[in-house]
Design a protein around this nucleic acid. Structure first.
Length: 273
DNA sequence: GCGACAG
DNA sequence: ATCTTGTCGC
């Protein structure tokens, strides 16, 4: 894939104030509304068989060699995840999926220049992600990032940042809430499929009360009282609205908490260490 | 100053 | 994110 807005490529070599300013600039080019030429149903994965037990295995997508990419085929969804090597290098893995099969895997690396700072994650891990996506030869139609998108102090989470840099539809999938106010307490158990809107509060640079994302329960155990799963925090990155972002994530989940593209990238980056 | 904070 | 074996529940 190729960078479209090079002026927004995250550069660790600048002050925190300049980073925040770059985020405000790129948000002006971010689109939190649908601008995608395909629907969640077009990339939906098969529902998991009911009889799946750990022993039977839940492998939904092949972990083996990539299948052939079809330029005329269904949309390509790219899952991306990061890991760190000795706290000195960020490694990013991108896995491209088309028609339920892996068509390509790419890796990106970048030295870790700055520490983790809430709100400035893209400047720590973004370089490796951009590197991985540039190493991806097939054009991704939808990017699924681990982290927030619009659910961010300046509405410029890592999913928004990367989505705008490549001007490609993107979604942020986080495991915990960075900011914003859930309409309903998340300190309770939800059933698979439930969604709780996250609204902007006074620490988000958006009209207070605006829905900026959702807590989405992708899966749940039979008896949450004994064993439960926490909801995913989904927010639009670029060119998708809040509801559509969740619809895509739901379509991409195949029996596990995380959407399949993310799981595969997770696994890739894990064995790369 | 206090509190809150993706990965 | 990362350090890490066994252990509980499905």
């Amino acid at each position: 894939m190729e960078v479209v807005h090079s002026e927004y490529v995250p550069d660790p070599d600048r002050t925190h104030e300049e980073m925040a300013e770059l985020q405000r600039d790129l948000v002006a080019d971010a689109v939190f509304a649908d601008d995608v030429d395909f629907a969640p149903a077009d990339v939906a994965l098969d529902d998991p068989p009911e009889d799946r037990t750990p022993e039977a295995g839940q492998q939904t997508l092949s972990a083996g060699p990539a299948e052939a990419y079809d330029p005329e085929g269904p949309p390509v969804v790219v899952g991306i995840d990061q890991a760190f090597v000795d706290d000195e290098e960020a490694v990013s893995a991108a896995v491209a999926i088309q028609d339920g099969a892996v068509v390509e895997r790419a890796v990106g690396r970048r030295p870790l220049e700055i520490p983790y700072i809430p709100g400035l994650l893209a400047f720590r891990e973004g370089g490796a992600i951009v590197d991985a996506l540039q190493n991806l030869s097939v054009p991704g139609d939808l990017l699924v990032l681990d982290g927030s998108g619009r659910i961010h102090f300046r509405q410029a989470g890592i999913a928004t940042h990367v989505g705008v840099v490549f001007d490609t539809p993107a979604i942020g999938v986080a495991k915990s809430l960075l900011c914003g106010e859930p309409r309903e307490s998340l300190d309770q158990y939800f059933e698979a499929g439930e969604r709780v809107a996250i609204e902007a509060d006074d620490e988000v640079e958006a009209p207070t009360g605006d829905v900026i994302g959702y807590a989405f329960q992708s899966r749940q155990y039979p008896n949450p009282e004994k064993r439960h799963v926490n909801p995913l925090i989904v927010s639009p990155g670029h060119r998708v609205d809040e509801e559509t972002a969740v619809d895509f994530v739901e379509a991409l989940c195949a029996g596990y908490k995380l959407p399949e593209p993310t799981r595969l990238a997770d696994r890739d980056v894990g064995r790369l260490k």
